[in-house]
Design a protein around this nucleic acid. Sequence first.
DNA 1: AGAAGATAGTCAGTGCACTGAGTATTTTGG
DNA 2: CCAAAATACTCAGTGCACTGACTATCTTCT
Lengths: 164, 164
Amino acid sequence: MMREEGQDRQHKDRSGKGQAVPALDLGTHPGHLARRLQQAHTLLWTTIVSEEVTSPQFAVLNALTGEDGLDQRTVGERVGLDRSTIAEVVRRLVARGLVDKERDTKDSRRSVLRVTEEGARVHHKLSLRTTRMNQVFLAPLDPQERSVFLELLKRVSDAAEGLR
Amino acid sequence: MMREEGQDRQHKDRSGKGQAVPALDLGTHPGHLARRLQQAHTLLWTTIVSEEVTSPQFAVLNALTGEDGLDQRTVGERVGLDRSTIAEVVRRLVARGLVDKERDTKDSRRSVLRVTEEGARVHHKLSLRTTRMNQVFLAPLDPQERSVFLELLKRVSDAAEGLR
DNA sequence: AGAAGATAGTCAGTGCACTGAGTATTTTGG
DNA sequence: CCAAAATACTCAGTGCACTGACTATCTTCT
């Protein structure tokens, strides 16, 4: 098994032309870490929660469980998906029979969404599993660190939300 | 300009069957927050750093700036991209003329990557801008919170890395 | 040397995420 | 009332990210 700690003894070679501009350490860049965090989460989700239903799909199911009969755009806004992406996600949920979609009779621009019986069952089952996943995900942190982490995560995300 | 608060004048009906399973508050779920964080970052990246070169592309450029002549798989490993994704990203970098790719003469399975002159220029320019972006991204946190945030982010990401 | 295994990369398929353009419908203002 | 603006959605295009199957090449072990 090879060790992977090549980052320190980085030969300061200057491959031909002298490296005027050094490489950055992306391990200290929040954006890069955010991407890796999200990848890690997706991995845990598929192994612990579900291989069929993705995390964004679950978010939509969850929003509709809270309040049935919302239109597509509103659901997208609640879970943080733009109009095109929410359409894609809903399309899959409908294809899997977890959500019903029909035109609003009052305003035929809108699509009204509703969780099916099966959708409710799946939501229930996955809800339980998300708890386990969250534990595994946050396992490297002790209890106070976890709440700090969640709070900071939320503050940064919410702030950027306002810039859209 | 219409306000966007239409979500309240909505029937709080309980669509027939009484909501046995309540909806979760995903605002407390690290996975959901991770996704939103990453979306926020992408948005900031395109507005502040570059519309042409994406953040993963920059990560690859940065890795090669540190150490020219790595093979594709190694670069992917360093920046956290699997073999298929790194291939895609590299393909685009080559298409934009920022990276050169050629077969290793010693081991013809490998593709050896190298930053072009143009790639080095672009890396330099974007490096400066990432600093500004990081400031904006972390603006909602005060200085101590920032370092705590980065550290926790890193711990959680690294831990999940081990589970791959 | 030759078969078995490991390794690097490609390719097809699925899915999230965004932009910009376009359609249909509703609302609003003169 | 009716044209203009706003709204909800669709569609095409780009790009990241992963899996599983496949090819080519190199290494190892007998």
